[in-house]
Design a protein around this nucleic acid. Structure first.
Lengths: 202, 202, 202, 202
DNA sequence: AATGAATGAGAGTTCATTCAT
DNA sequence: TATGAATGAACTCTCATTCAT
């Protein structure tokens, strides 16, 4: 039976396992990620894994949850000071790409979740869209952006971010980690988004 | 050793296996799809599978290849008569959504390919982008659309199609198949794309 | 998934596994009986086990069922010609001890069932008692034996058979199998039973 | 290394572990009884177990030993005042059933011992039979009972007690413990025994 | 062309036991 | 005296693939 760590040592061990799981899931995928490989990466014995996690699936779900939270946190922080929606988009995408340069596994983990843990996946997208939709609705009402449908637009923007990041961050990943998104790609992406969102000139 | 079917009967068997594989991969995913399940679905014995395919991975690759070809064919056909790029986008997206309503598994199969067969995945996206990029470059040069970066724009559009279709086709899938995309979602999506692409008023 | 054998070869393999399971369960007990050991004893690979059985527990249950059926069959046959209940007891016990000399594992398997598969155990005892009770009730009514309570008496007789057989057959087991029950033990046992059952002299 | 408790506190801890072990072994059986579960039941940490016991097997043996001693003590006490063997049987069975109503686990523990610790099991049955045999031999010589074979008779009586108690005490066990044996079952059982033992009328 | 019995490496998971604290 | 984190051997079970028929 897994249980929460009761000591500082236990907490550290648990974190090392979670870190290792992120790397292994990101590298070889859920199915080819074996518990041994995860624990070896964490420098502990196999049984130790089960002191802290109920099983392979639970650690995966926890990872998705964790990444989602951290990602949204980073984006929220980045957006805070933006004077309007278009600036907010720029800051938000900047933050998103920066985050996934640090944790390129995010793309892979989410896409895997389709079969591994659909609930986790729906939660992930759902949480992002929820916030996005409200912000877009407000901006649309305020005339900061064109009168778009907030729901569809939120999904479209999310789809753009995902595929661009996948193409220019994840797929460029080398042994020394993922590169930042090229400046021109970022600008072209924002051009696209800006055109799609900016209010029509009267 | 697998080999090409020499008789009509053989061809039919092979097709039934491929059909079954599409269903099973789409339903439970590559890893949980067992050869027995695929062959049972095709109404043949397990050994028969290996008469026509070299293994599980090969059948997956063939499936991706096949879906990609059929999808592009449908889109090309649909676009043929379009008078300009914006109309072509409308027709192309219409065709794409129609195709994936028939074969919603496409979304799942492609997203799985990330780990199952990265080459197949890159080929899939690559082929689509290649055509897209050229068309966008031409349209951009011709002033039919705004002066966008063809590569980034192609990816962005693909990302939109994928996520919108996933959300409103795949995820709405019931026991009687996937529904067509709702009209308003389709229109909102095309509003978004149109705004992003239409040339600036001078 | 396990399934019934479809060919003669399959049937033979299944039987060999069942035989081996009986030996191994009887020798080291359910928990220390590993599937590998069972399959090695049957001369097949581990995976073969799962072609014919759903798991370790299922094979155990099947074994209990099988032993119970065979045992009751042997006893029923032996009793058939008995002129009265006391003779039937003699013939029945004779047959029971003969059977368990051939299959001394019976004692061990049943006693294990307490934890391994209580349902199987209840079924085992239940089936025996059912028949016994009816026979005793009839004999009691007919005045062939004393006016005993059939239920309690059935259990008592069963308890006697089990413990005497365990003591003088199972525990005497050597490498060359279990010995028959010593004649005097058998006679003493039947003396005891006879006294307990015979009608009071008027 | 385990060692005898040196303080009153240690003694109490040890007893709590033993109590918990009895419950757990009785409930889920030796193999499914985990040390954690036993220690949790005793309200101590896992490591504490090994301060007082050498291992799982040792605690099991100690339990068998303990139960055997307590059971025989209760029966000896109960029999002490009996005027003859038949009365002694009545008192002894009464005490046995009373004891196992308090500790129904006894049945389960003994039957498990077959594989867990054959020595413990033989010792258990051996000790009971030893006393029984002598008493029966004496009673037989004295003409208090029929001229039975003491050894076989001792085992037969033990077998009766075990199976009747199992059927009407252990198997009736509810969440609030085991019920006493029903009066009529007790009387029928003693009828059976009495008939089997009473001296022939001359 | 088709079958399905057989294989065995490899997976996730459990748990008695040790030992540093 | 007591703790609980850590270990790793051993377990049951799965399934892609082979091959005799």
């Amino acid at each position: 039976m897994s249980s929460a760590p009761r000591t500082a040592r236990g907490r550290a061990t648990r974190d090392r396992i979670l870190d290792s799981a992120l790397k292994v899931f990101g590298e070889v995928g859920y199915h080819d990620a074996s518990i041994v490989r995860i624990t070896e990466g964490a420098g502990v014995a196999m049984g130790t894994f089960y002191l802290y996690f109920e099983g392979k699936l639970q650690v995966f779900n926890e990872l998705v949850e964790d990444l989602n939270r951290r990602m949204r946190h980073r984006m929220t922080q980045a957006i805070a000071a933006a004077p309007n929606r278009l600036e907010a988009e720029r800051a938000g995408f900047r933050a998103f790409f920066a985050f996934t340069t640090e944790v390129p596994q995010l793309y892979r983990i989410i896409r895997q979740a389709e079969f591994v843990s659909p609930e986790a996946m729906h939660l992930h997208y759902g949480r992002i869209v929820d916030g996005y939709r409200k912000a877009l609705a407000a901006a649309s009402d305020a005339g900061e952006i064109a009168p778009v449908d907030p729901e569809v637009t939120a999904w479209a923007l999310m789809g753009i971010g995902e595929i661009i990041g996948m193409r220019w961050i994840l797929w460029q990943e080398g042994s020394d980690g993922a590169p930042p998104i090229p400046d021109d790609v970022f600008e072209h992406t924002l051009d696209f988004i800006t055109r799609a969102l900016r209010p029509d000139k009267e």
